[in-house]
């Protein structure tokens, strides 16, 4: 079972750490903890005048699924506003609950439909980004 969960694409995304780092001048920061496991994600964003994300950087203290999710989210977040990020969240929710397949790297998270206890690992970066967008 874990072979499917930790398929090559997930491991590669986790190691890639796309978007990891800090912004020189973030306009908003969001941080969320998972109190059950202690994992933590910090999202820094710079918003353009149109309210869309111009830059994003994150710091993850979490498992491979959380790292991979932060990478996958970072790759698609720039250029989107809060509504666009909500759309991405809905897409990921659909993938990990088995109601949709998802696009691109999001599809790699499909095995989460058999691991309910790990879904919060995937959604934590989304929660942190939502907190940042909420100001």
């Amino acid at each position: 079972m874990s072979q499917a969960l930790y398929q090559d694409r997930i491991v590669a995304l986790a190691k890639a750490k796309l978007g990891a780092g800090k912004l020189a001048n973030p306009t908003a920061i969001g941080e969320r903890d998972n109190p059950l496991c202690g994992d933590r994600v910090r999202m820094e964003i710079a918003l353009g005048p149109d309210g869309r994300i111009a830059e994003l950087a994150h710091k993850v203290r979490g498992c491979a699924l959380c790292e991979a999710s932060a990478s996958a989210l970072s790759a698609r977040a720039v250029g989107r506003d809060a509504a666009g990020i909500a759309t991405l969240r809905a897409e990921m929710d659909g993938v990990i609950t088995g109601t949709s397949d998802g696009e691109g790297d999001f599809a790699a998270f499909a095995p989460l439909r058999d691991h309910k206890s790990r879904r919060d690992c995937v959604t934590l970066p989304f929660e942190a980004l939502r907190a940042a967008l909420a100001g």
């Binding site: 079972m1 874990s2 072979q3 969960l5 930790y6 496991c37 994992d39 979490g62 498992c63 491979a64 699924l65 691991h115 790990r118 690992c121």
Partner: peptide, 13 residues
């Protein structure tokens, strides 16, 4: 190189 939750998940397998 491995987060504890990932370790536990693989041990479960």
């Amino acid at each position: 190189s491995v987060h504890p939750h990932d370790t536990a998940q693989i041990l479960d397998s």
